[in-house]
Simulated scan of single mutants.
Amino acid sequence: MTMIESAVLPIPAVACSEPGTVRRHVLSILDLTPDEVLYLARRGVALKHAPTAPQTLRGRTVGVYFRKTSTRTRSGFLVGAGRLGATVVYFGPNELQTNTGESLGDTARTLAGYLDVLVMRTNESVEEMQGFAAYPSMSVVNALSSDEHPTQALTDLSSMLEHFGRLKGLSVLYCGEGNKSAAALALAMSRIEGMRLTLATPAGYGLDAQVLATAQSLAAVHGATIEETHDLDAVQPGYDVVYTSRWQEMGVSKADPEWKSHFHPFRVTRALMDRVGNEGAVFMHDLPAVRNEDVDDEVLDGPRSLAWVQAQYKMWSAMAVMEWCGAGVQDQD
């Protein structure tokens, strides 16, 4: 049995609810049970390797509302929804009447009459998305808020699952800022038995203390390990994945004019990969990358890089999330 077969075979058959039923939301990884996280990771792999895309969203309408820039996430949801048979509507940052004074509640109530799924990127608090999610006829998916990037974590898990054929027992070293991708990854991995995440972050740029505490508390319950250090040199070998992210999230610089000096020691180089990686260790990046800053070219483009596979998984994972939310796709007993 191949790694891909072992990852896909656990996918059970799926069933779809009738239009008009109460929808599910993915505003945070914590909206999902541990079993649902694993299901969506496996489902992303299965969708990639299916001979044709199932038309699980035929007759449904998906709205994609991005107020901030995006390449992979926006494209993944737009193209993925079309592959699943949905009608797709895109809203740019200046195209809704909230820009002219309409209340968020009135806008949400209106859109809930048209859409089965609304995918949102705001870079603001998830509370705004919760306002849209108040209407049970419409699912809301967080495609990046100021709190978390949950669909990125699902993308990452699917990428690892396809490559290694398993998630249990994998060790991941994350280097760089404790940003929204890191937060979602920590909350996801904290509930998968045997997974280990070490966050190597510059002092003052670590994971939000409350998120870290939550992830560590969940890890203790589920048999995972979540830890943080500010000393990358002290990290010992033994990792299956070395992961980094752009130092300037969404291209926004830091208040400290000397901030880059704190990040330089966390750059991913071939020497770091060789020092901390197990045999067969891979590199991952949520992209976009700043070449030769957060990661060296020879690592990003090298044979151990999964970054480009990971980028394509943005679509497969988006498809898994949208069908699970908007069509009630679920495991069959």
Rank of each mutant, 00 (worst) to 15 (best):
L173E: 05
E127T: 07
T110E: 14
M138L: 06
P150V: 05
D106I: 00
G131L: 07
M195W: 01
D147A: 00
N179C: 00
L197H: 07
L167I: 09
R191S: 15
G204T: 03
G178W: 10
E95W: 01
S137I: 00
A143G: 07
M189H: 11
M120L: 09
A209Y: 04
T155H: 02
M129D: 08
S146L: 01
Y205G: 08
A203C: 03
E162K: 10
L185G: 02
G101L: 01
P202K: 05
L118I: 15
A108V: 03
N99V: 15
S158W: 08
P150A: 05
M129T: 11
G169T: 02
L96S: 09
M138V: 04
R191W: 09
Q130W: 10
S146E: 14
I192C: 00
N123T: 13
T198R: 04
M138D: 11
V117T: 07
L185R: 11
E124F: 11
L197I: 12
E177G: 13
L170G: 07
G169A: 04
A200C: 02
Y205E: 10
S159D: 01
Y205A: 09
L161A: 08
S146G: 15
L170S: 01
S145R: 12
Q130A: 12
T198M: 03
T122L: 12
A134S: 14
I192N: 14
A203T: 15
S190D: 00
A183D: 05
N94I: 05
G176R: 02
E128R: 15
A183F: 05
T110K: 01
A112K: 02
L104D: 11
